[in-house]
Design a protein around this nucleic acid. Structure first.
Lengths: 150, 150
DNA sequence: AACAAAAAGTTAGTATGCCAAATGTTTGCC
DNA sequence: GGCAAACATTTGGCATACTAACTTTTTGTT
């Protein structure tokens, strides 16, 4: 009962955060979710990235990105364009509406980011981030199996 | 680019952890996911809890719990039973197989819990947990809206 | 040049998760 | 006792997210 709670704590805290954040976006009449906004930010920074680039940058599987881009495309915030150099690839273009919506989302996201930090000194936040970052080495693309039996 | 990354970091780290953990469970031939295992633990502790009790304890919406219990019931790890005192309520009973499966899951979960902590002194883990716990006050059941305009 | 292997995207299937709405039951108030 | 409000659960709709399998195209090897 003592420390089995770590994973549970992470999961539950993230659930609360996600719900709060997406509700805040809806309340501000933003028409994209947090994850979708991430795509818009990346495309504002550098338009015409490929699907694979985007999925790597936001850290999701290619197949997850397909759905994300589908939804963004349906509402006209991005468009898929054939790559002139590689016929397997698609270049994703953000539209002016997409950029505007991303900017709206950014305000809310910045605010919630600040809310996370309130009440804690910077050193503690650094530790928090350091531990989270360690997950990328520890849990990245590895089945987590030790020497599995048959 | 500096600290907009906090939320992103939390989301992505949790994704890595979840995927790693569920893959570890599959690799160990455990037939339940992490979240399902949480239900089995709670029922082993105290059998016959209601749906509402369970959803509160694991911190998900009632409607999410419906699906979780559906899946556990389908494979025979729990059973729904009518409450004798309140005809609205269902009492969820864990089966011996469910308890056994929960025990199998617990070993893996304990191991991953330890993996999270490796490399960090206890004081840092305490800070980590403290910040996560703050999410429950900050982000609990509140739309996150400030004074939204029309 | 031929052919295998790798890479880019999509699709299908499954599992969380939320919200809103619907159903049935119980409570509280008069 | 009657009726509105609250509660317990489910359903339907949507959004992530993964894995596995599939198609098309490119690369790498001989």
């Amino acid at each position: 009962m003592k420390d089995d709670r770590l994973i549970f704590l992470i999961f539950t805290a993230q659930n609360k955060l996600r719900t709060y954040l997406n509700n805040a976006l809806v309340a501000a009449n933003v028409r994209v979710t947090f994850v979708q906004a991430g795509i818009l930010f990346l495309l504002k920074q550098s338009n015409g990235r490929t699907m694979s680039d985007l999925s790597q940058l936001i850290g999701v599987d290619n197949s997850t990105l397909t759905g994300l881009v589908d939804r963004l495309e349906k509402v006209g915030f991005v468009a898929r364009q054939a790559s002139p150099t590689d016929r397997r690839s698609l270049l994703i273009q953000v539209t002016p509406e997409g950029i505007a919506e991303g900017d709206k989302a950014k305000m809310i996201i910045k605010r919630v980011n600040e809310e996370i930090k309130t009440g804690f000194p910077p050193e503690e936040m650094e530790i928090f981030k350091k531990i989270l970052r360690s997950f990328f080495e520890k849990f990245n693309k590895n089945t987590g199996s030790r020497s599995e039996d048959g």
